[in-house]
Design a protein around this nucleic acid. Structure first.
Length: 511
DNA sequence: CTGGGGACGGGGCCC
DNA sequence: AGGGCCCCGTCCCCA
């Protein structure tokens, strides 16, 4: 007995789930687009993906090998076994598909493309659909590189990739760190409100099931620079990710030790069950796509930006940008939609004035011209009225670079300008994922790391990974037993300065 | 239950 | 832009 169309129905369900982001447990980054998918499906379709998905929830593909539009077709093929005729508008498109298929070791798709190319050399295709079974000369193991097959095969790549940075064995090589940076150098954005559906160009356009991240709302476009993963990875340590050293390898956000472990599993002590549990994205719990700390702090994220131009509203309850059923996210209002069409319709309901109190360019100009002009609303947390408490000595240096607010002396105009920004209530750097606003670009990009699950700094002892090198150095004292911070009152020693400070408060606080 | 300690994440800020 | 440091907060364990 056999259920008719069982496999077909199963695949149909999976594809529908993919469209909704349901149970998707892996994100594939292709240039400026994100695609969510199911690890099992990818692993069943591609040797390459099979080697990667057990260890990585975020996979970055080499854009020299595959573009977002091509990968959309690839993903469609994986989930349907078909390529629409629109995917074969030219031999060039087929060639691009073949390159991608070879790169991703999608043998059936590669064979299909080769046959199609060969076929086009004789008679133009007029079929609407192409399936592997429709081919005239099936080659189930069509792994032999075709004319466009590339020397840099994914198999070669992932072998390096899977060597965890913390692993002392393996084939970690010089230059891997640099490779990591290159691989993630493609721009990555989480969808802005208009990006998913309004881009006029094909490449930048939302590609169906992927999130095009390149286009953002007008306010974002000037309030922030494009966030490049390379910038998020610039600080890779020598013992960080040992990603592929090959010239064009795909990479992932994090190279985890084998077997794959969560950070909590790697805790030298009893693992914390669910740190920041309230921030875990429910839909990601299975796959932990973003890592445990990568939940979206919506309460902080959707707040109005001080005195300026960028408004974030509280998102719909239960909605997490970019996950769950609402794949398409309107960043300005936080609403999610299951389709680009619905998002498109929604975006049109926003008027420019609703979203932005004033134009971004004006805001930028005002940043330049009115430094120090919005000091009445200065943030008490950042206001260096506390300069004394922080040991800042006003007028200590050159009198020519004094802060007009706190009289802090800066060594040069650049430092003064940066310092004066700390007085601004304005936070011109919003996170493209959660909308949280930051005063400095570097802080925002560091924050983005947590969303992307990028932890370049790995402990060689336990494999635990960190987003900051400083944290790793701090953590290493756990293994070394070094306790450099000593309480001058009771002689207690601590591995972390902050714990010493906490301890000191115990001494000083009235009891 | 509570307080102290260990460990860690995030943001601000300066260099 | 990135590194380093500080501070705040949190979670967990344990006495």
């Amino acid at each position: 007995m056999e259920q008719q169309n069982h496999s077909k129905q199963l695949l149909l369900q999976l594809n529908q789930q993919r469209a909704k982001g349901y149970l998707c447990d892996v994100i594939i980054v292709v240039e400026n687009a994100l695609f969510r998918a199911h690890k099992n499906v990818l692993a069943a379709s591609s040797v390459y993906f099979k080697s990667l998905v057990p260890h990585d929830n975020l996979i970055n593909l080499d854009t020299e090998m595959v573009s977002p539009s091509i990968f959309r077709q690839v993903l469609d093929f994986i989930y349907t076994g078909r390529l629409s005729s629109s995917d074969f508008v030219s031999d060039h498109s087929i060639s691009s598909l073949l390159i991608a298929a070879s790169y991703l070791q999608l043998t059936e798709l590669a064979a299909l493309c080769r046959r199609k190319l060969k076929h086009n050399g004789q008679t133009p295709s007029s079929s609407n659909k192409m399936t592997p079974s429709s081919s005239t000369s099936p080659t189930p193991n069509g792994h032999t590189p075709g004319p466009l097959c590339l020397s840099s095969t994914p198999l070669h790549n992932h072998q390096h990739h899977n060597n965890h940075s913390g692993s002392k064995k393996g084939s970690q090589r010089p230059g891997q760190e640099g490779r990591l940076r290159e691989d993630l150098s493609e721009k990555v954005f989480i969808s802005g409100s208009r990006c998913a559906s309004l881009s006029p160009s094909g490449e930048g356009r939302s590609n169906g099931l992927g999130l095009d991240l390149s286009k953002r709302s007008p306010s974002e476009s000037t309030a922030t620079e494009e966030v490049s993963p390379s910038s998020l990875l610039q600080s890779s340590s020598p013992h960080s990710s040992s990603l592929s050293p090959t010239p064009t390898p795909p990479t992932t956000s994090s190279a985890k030790p084998e077997p794959p472990k969560t950070s909590t599993d790697l805790q030298p002590r009893a693992p914390r069950k669910r740190p920041r549990g309230d921030k875990v994205t429910p839909e990601l719990e299975d796959g932990e796509v973003d890592g445990e700390e990568n939940g979206l702090d919506q309460s902080e994220g959707r707040r109005r930006n001080g005195n300026t131009n960028y408004i974030y509203r509280q998102p719909q309850p239960g909605f997490e940008p970019g996950v769950g059923d609402n794949l398409y996210v309107c960043i300005p209002c936080g609403k999610g939609f299951p389709s680009s069409e619905q998002l498109n319709a929604h975006v049109d309901t926003h008027t420019h004035d609703q979203l932005y109190l004033k134009d971004e360019e004006e805001e930028e100009e005002e940043e330049e011209e009115e430094c120090g002009g919005y000091l009445k609303d200065k943030d008490p947390d950042t206001c260096p009225d506390d300069s004394a408490s922080k040991g800042v000595k006003p007028d200590a240096e050159e009198p020519g670079h004094l802060c007009t607010v706190c009289s802090k002396s800066c060594k040069d105009a650049t430092s003064l300008r940066q310092h004066e920004k700390s007085h601004w209530l304005n936070r011109p750097f919003p996170c493209n994922i959660c909308g949280k606003l930051f005063t400095q670009r570097g802080t925002m990009t560091r924050h983005m790391r947590s969303h992307l699950g990028l932890k370049p700094f790995a402990c060689e002892e336990c494999g635990m990974r960190f987003t900051r090198q400083y944290r790793l150095a701090e953590h290493m004292r756990v293994h070394s037993g070094e306790k450099p911070y000593e309480c001058q009152l009771c002689g207690g020693k601590f591995t972390q300065q902050r714990n010493l400070l906490s301890h000191m408060r115990m001494h000083t606080s009235p009891s």
